[in-house]
Write a protein that binds this DNA or RNA. Structure first.
Lengths: 213, 213
DNA sequence: GCAAATTAATGATTTATTCAAG
DNA sequence: CTTGAATAAATCATTAATTTGC
């Protein structure tokens, strides 16, 4: 054991370092958007952390851009809306046995899928997470109502994908330690217009929304 | 609106699939179970993706990353070993009210904490996740078995961490939509041994470090 | 036929659980 | 045991298909 913790030390750290470099390493040129006025913070202000909320709020915007039609690929910034090609590839990969791609794989997949529309790594990650979970629950639901097939309940026969290796085909392997490395980006997404403000429900736009929850 | 875009590109990539139907579930989310089967992908090397990760192999990097001593904190270990200063700061932030920092905050915190030892953004993220969860369960346990006389091996209690007295209540708990943007890094971590089949993995190197290409 | 209202589907987050390192 | 790390489950939130009323 011996996990002595003297947290009192924490006090005063910030004072110790009056001038903090805080070189926000502008990571990859992943998303040059968000011009982001300089936020070259020289002093690490704790308070700015505690209350990150109520941010800049994206005011200004006299632009009234109203989104470019953009057809399909870049919806402007809400949520990822996959194209059919993307879905197809992802499902193919899923059926091929991929369940939780690691960082490198996600990167590769994202690179490929970006040919068919805007996409980010997290979209790929989330897709696999969701698809896996929902396939599972769908299967469970079917198993409940239908006749229980004792063995070989897998309708999925074979994936002749010719993976020279062996597609580790663990349909439902619980907990595998796979280290996926990731990192946060520097900028923060613009939350579109979610009603985060307590109260003040804009009922005009959505009158009566029965929220079946 | 109704911007249906049906992409028809060169098909044929999946055609050689023996018997899988490749049902694109995303075609119509609502009713039609079986829709067309038009997916078209030009060329997409699936095999390169379904790599069974049989050998992450650190090729290329080989040595420069090695640079073993690493300075201070990590003796070359696999997981983050926080220093007292780091813990102190994190707890301070936690007590200050921070629960789920967003990307920008994580970046800043990481930048600061890296002054006291090697650290990555995910460490910060995980720390908050775990700390929050464990504080909660500790709290719950205390409230339940209040009269319980556990041998509780003397919780260090060096710091008071005033229980729920000043920290907000449930207010900040239930599901807040915070957009945290993140991305995967380019490299992949080595998988920890854990394979009963020892297999002689080369797990000495660790390309860890936020300086991926 | 169109557009608002419903509803199914699903992307995105948070919480709970579990595994493993030290 | 403690706790960092990772995954699964729950659930919030938004998009798009479908229904409905005109």
């Amino acid at each position: 054991m011996g996990s002595m913790k003297v947290h009192q030390l924490a006090r005063g750290f910030w004072e110790h370092e009056p001038s903090l470099t805080l070189s926000c390493k502008r990571l990859r040129p992943l998303a040059p958007k968000l011009a982001n006025t300089d936020h070259s913070v020289t002093s690490f202000d704790l308070k700015s952390f505690i209350r990150p909320d109520s941010g800049p709020r994206k005011l200004a915007s006299s632009d009234e851009k109203k989104d470019s039609p953009q057809g399909e690929t870049h919806p402007g910034g809400t949520r990822w809306n996959p194209t059919q090609e993307q879905i197809g590839i992802l499902e193919m990969l899923y059926r091929g046995g991929m369940r939780t791609p690691n960082g490198q794989q996600i990167e590769d997949i994202t690179a490929q899928l970006s040919r068919y529309g805007k996409i980010e790594g997290k979209n790929v990650f989330y897709w696999f997470q969701n698809h896996k979970a929902r396939e599972r629950q769908k299967q469970k639901r079917n198993s409940l109502g239908l006749s229980h097939s004792p063995r070989t309940p897998s309708p999925i026969t074979i994936i002749s994908l010719d993976t020279r290796g062996e597609v580790e085909k663990d349909e439902d392997s619980p907990y595998k330690r796979k280290c996926r490395s990731w990192s946060f980006e520097c900028f923060e997404l613009e939350e579109s217009r979610s009603c985060k403000e307590e109260g003040d429900r804009t009922l005009e736009l959505f009158p009566l929304h029965p929220e079946g929850r």
